[in-house]
Amino acid sequence: MNPPALQIRTGSRSRPWLRSELLLLGVLIVESLVFARTGTHFATVGNALEILRLSVEIGLLAVVMTPVILTGGIDLSVGSLLGLCAVCFGKLWRDGGLAWPVAALATLGIGGMAGGLNAVLITRLRLPPLIVTLGSLSLFRGLAEAITRGVDNFTGFPPSFLMWGQGYFGGVIPAQAPLGIAVMIGVGLLVHATSLGRSLRAIGFSPEGARYAGVPVGRQITVVYLLSGVAAALAALVYVARVGQAKADAGTGYELLAITAVVLGGTSIFGGTGSVFGTVLGVATLAVLRNGLQLSDQPGELAGILTGVFLLTVLAGEMAFKKYSARRVASGMLQTSTASSKPASS
């Protein structure tokens, strides 16, 4: 009855991201093999754990950016918010006299509020996420600079706090690694195993379609931007614990790294398709690149350049694929019409 339907179905795309993930895994392996030859001490367990230790902050931001981009949105403010949360934490602990766990909790609250500000502007006023978070990027960084008066640098945190960024469990496992992995698993479950994750995809594919299906679009978009804010605060805490100081410029440019990792990981910038696993691979690819170039005595800027080039290449490839499959669907529709139309009566 409907042979064209079968013709279009040839390439099963029920998990279209799987392909890009495999590709990325290949890139990661090739990259590692190259650096294993060129880099000194690259292929050691210690270095692998060091890469893990250094990529937790970007990882947190990127993993939580995944559901944001799945809804077809974007959050450019996470890097600035990291900076703001870092100095807020420092201020609360040093000048506010709070114990660091209390200050940390308050910092998470601040992150949530900042994410809530984005969410309200996006859902209530129906403003494009791009411009809202571009504005809040400036606002958050500006507030961080205002709080520190541009020069203040919070240091001297207690060892019990620094341990979360510099310590090792059993002398081997970086202390922040379990935290990063827990968030990764949590968000992975949220995106892939819950009803919320499913509706986020529906919103990303078609916000109107989701609304017609009874999905509370505004509420769910609010959730992802709130999560993004909290994740930035968490990343700020890990950052401060790792470097031992909180300055206003903390996390500058992190939003770009996070977005790049997500897009490299196969999540469509137009929303709908993507996976947290892909994002994790994206983070790993970028982290290995940076670390490997460093151990191979290459300039650090090369990593930045390659990051930008990677991002553009992946996007252009995605668009080319999209156009190609759109053409295939169009030609498929043509077949449908010829197959099912009856002869014209005159």
Partner: peptide, 26 residues
């Protein structure tokens, strides 16, 4: 006034300006 507020004020002005557009569009 502390000059470090410049960026924050700038960001707040952007958000206010786009929010005004959003209200009008609605």
């Amino acid at each position: 006034l502390p000059p470090q507020w410049e960026k924050a004020i700038q960001g707040a002005i952007i958000l206010l300006a786009v929010a005004a557009d959003g209200e009008k569009g609605k």
